[in-house]
Amino acid sequence: MNAISESPVKSPASDTNTRKILVWDIPTRVFHWLLVLSFGGAYLTAESESWRLLHVTLGYTMAALVGFRLMWGLIGTRYARFSTFVRGPKAVARYLGALLRGRPEHYTGHNPAGALAIVALLTLALAVSASGWATYNDIAGDRVQDIHEAVANVMLAIVGIHIAGVLVASWLHRENLVGAMFTGRKLGRPEDGIRSAWRSVGALLLVAVLAIWWTQWQSAPTPGHLADRPIASTKAGDHDRDGD
């Protein structure tokens, strides 16, 4: 493994030997924004009977996306691989300490704190998808529904922390990290960029997700049958209404 990809580099704002390089391949970017769409949509439709099918479909989409990301984290491009960006507790603590002091180390790929958030979000996405499937199929009753709601809320909190971290790091490094997840390009040394964006894999991932959506709509149960299925609520107030 190339040691450059594992180590922090000089801040791009102070390094004259930097330019925009390709860091995030298309499959990674497509996965990222589809997961944002799926989780956000599923969370917003969690309490609506009329949007039940959309909620369930987005939950299945999340599970499929995580499955792809786990595979791509093993065989994908340099900065997509877990072996490149997942680091130990000491590296995370050192980065967070530097971040609090306003002098965080710059990483071409994911920084240690971002890597921790990614691992947490992938784990929570699997948990919320599995508990949502169990809830939809009425397995284990209210207990699994409570777990589903709790995990969804924890995941939302981690998303908020992740967004805050990205904004702070963007400001401190004078680099648009949100924009980089659209363009795939960040400031870095020319030799550190990846060679291919893997457009074909990104297109296949998008087609696979569209196929999931089409299949769900084609096999949709009748409205009456769908309404009989339980749905998880993400608001504590629903428990109060259940007790009335």
Rank of each mutant, 00 (worst) to 15 (best):
V166A: 08
A117T: 12
R195W: 10
A63M: 15
L172F: 03
L70G: 13
T16K: 12
A203Y: 04
L35F: 12
S129C: 07
N17W: 01
R81Y: 12
Q216S: 13
P221D: 10
R52S: 05
Y79L: 02
V128A: 01
A117Q: 08
K235Y: 05
V144E: 06
E47H: 10
V66W: 04
G193D: 08
D25G: 04
N17V: 04
Y43M: 00
L100W: 10
R94T: 13
S14G: 06
A236M: 13
S5G: 09
T57W: 04
A157G: 12
D15F: 01
Y136S: 10
G97V: 12
K20V: 07
H110S: 02
A232T: 15
N111I: 05
I21Y: 01
E49V: 14
A150M: 10
M181F: 09
S219R: 15
G97N: 13
W51A: 14
T77I: 04
T222V: 05
G141Q: 09
R19Q: 14
A42R: 02
G73D: 07
N137P: 04
T84M: 08
V92C: 06
E191G: 00
A13R: 10
S170D: 05
I26A: 07
S170T: 11
G97R: 13
T57I: 06
A150T: 14
R87C: 11
Y60D: 02
T28G: 06
D25M: 04
I231H: 03
A203K: 00
L226C: 06
M181L: 12
I158T: 07
W214E: 12
V154Y: 09
V23I: 15
W133Q: 05
A227I: 00
T28C: 08
V23N: 07
I118D: 13
Y107A: 01
A3H: 13
A115C: 03
L44A: 14
F31W: 15
H225D: 15
L54V: 15
R101G: 09
L187P: 03
E175P: 12
H148F: 04
P27T: 12
R87S: 15
V151R: 05
H239C: 09
L167F: 06
V86M: 09
R69F: 06
P221T: 10
K10H: 10
W24I: 00
A152L: 13
F182D: 06
N2Y: 09
N2W: 09
M155C: 11
R81K: 15
G141N: 12
A127C: 14
I118C: 08
I158Q: 03
S14P: 04
Y136N: 11
A220K: 13
G224F: 02
V128W: 00
A150K: 07
S83N: 12
A127G: 14
N17Y: 01
A91D: 13
G243E: 13
R19I: 04
M62C: 06
G202V: 03
I158H: 07
H162G: 04
R94N: 13
A208C: 11
I161Y: 11
W171P: 02
L124M: 13
L96P: 01
I161T: 11
R185S: 09
L44W: 10
A3K: 11
G88V: 03
